[in-house]
Computed example of a mutant assay.
Amino acid sequence: MAAQEEAAAEPWPVGVVAQRFVVGPGEVVLGCTDASTADRSVPAVGVSGAVEVAPLVWRTGARSCEPHLLAVGSPGAGGTGLLRSVALQALGWADVVLVDGGGSGGFGCFAGRVGVRGVESTPEGAVVGLAWLARETERRLLLDGEGRRAERPLWVVVDRPVVLGHRAWAAGAGDPLGWLDVPLRYGREAGVTVALAEQVGVWGSLGDGVLGCLGARVALGALTVEQVSAVLGWAPPLGAVPGAGAGFARLAAGPVCRLRVPVTPDPWDEAAEVAHRRAVWGLLPAPVGSGGTGVEADASGAF
């Protein structure tokens, strides 16, 4: 118990922005954790300069014990930002499909970028995109080992899937979540990774079939001990107080650890700090056909 309280008392790293961390192939940094929990430290960029942080590393791919991710948070806790962060990291070596289940436009900055297979924000578009994902997973499963290794990894990132399901039902567009069954069950073998984020109070509506395949778990924001325990399957450390952008994580049957996600706002959000928005713009791949670097001013001309 004393060790838990001591770990919880460690100060959080401040101002770590969106970036691609120095990690191995297929590894994604979900955020910063306590040094006593991490198995390494990595250099990182903060608003005030270079810092050394203890990363929580999620290993994806064929050898992963937890090939898919679920993030659950209170409203405004940073679930969408976490999805943006993992998508920006994955685009360094994978193709990505992004589905904005709530239709908020939070993934609009990814549209038309190299490596981005699609950005869907309508129920109809989501159904089409996820149906394609299921067929693509099956196509990859039919390849031999050499053929699978030649394929570029594929990620699907879905924000607010429960809301998406209701919007699709209301629009008569069909069941978009039903198409997730194949990539969730067979994605590890096919090189397909699924990352979902949903708000507390509704995430359980995803159903046992979906939830049973999501072994990497994150709980963000001002949640009760009971809520965190329901998400992670274990109680959080004693004395730890989460807030916006912070919480807890558990990878498969591992320990529960504290987590602070990189600050990854929508770069078109004028209410966000300019330095944070600039970091996101700098990570976006170049627009398709531009031959550029992908670093550019936003629509407001702020950069």
Rank of each mutant, 00 (worst) to 15 (best):
Q4A: 15
E6D: 13
E6Y: 13
E6S: 13
A7L: 15
A8Q: 04
A8L: 02
A8E: 05
A9Y: 06
E10W: 12
E10Q: 13
E10T: 14
P11D: 09
W12Y: 07
V14H: 12
G15N: 12
G15P: 13
G15E: 14
G15H: 10
V17I: 10
V17F: 06
A18G: 06
Q19N: 04
R20K: 05
R20T: 13
R20P: 11
F21A: 05
F21N: 00
E27A: 13
E27I: 09
E27M: 07
V28A: 04
V28D: 04
L30M: 02
G31Q: 04
C32H: 09
T33V: 12
D34L: 03
A35V: 14
S36N: 08
T37F: 15
A38I: 01
A38N: 02
D39Q: 10
S41E: 15
S41W: 13
V42G: 01
P43R: 01
P43G: 03
P43M: 01
A44P: 05
A44V: 00
A44H: 01
A44K: 00
A44E: 01
A44T: 02
G46D: 02
G46E: 00
G46H: 02
S48C: 12
S48E: 15
G49R: 00
G49Q: 00
G49I: 00
A50T: 14
A50W: 10
V51F: 01
V51S: 01
V51E: 01
E52G: 12
E52R: 11
E52N: 13
E52C: 10
V53M: 02
V53Q: 01
A54G: 04
P55L: 02
P55C: 03
L56Q: 11
V57W: 03
V57P: 10
V57D: 08
W58V: 06
T60C: 07
A62G: 14
A62T: 14
R63Q: 15
S64C: 06
S64W: 03
C65R: 08
C65G: 15
E66Q: 11
P67F: 05
H68M: 06
H68N: 06
L69S: 09
L70N: 08
A71Y: 11
A71V: 14
V72C: 12
S74M: 13
S74L: 13
P75L: 04
P75T: 08
G76C: 12
A77V: 05
G78P: 12
G78V: 09
G79A: 14
G79M: 09
T80E: 08
G81C: 15
G81M: 11
G81R: 07
L82E: 07
L82H: 08
L83P: 08
R84H: 03
S85F: 08
V86D: 09
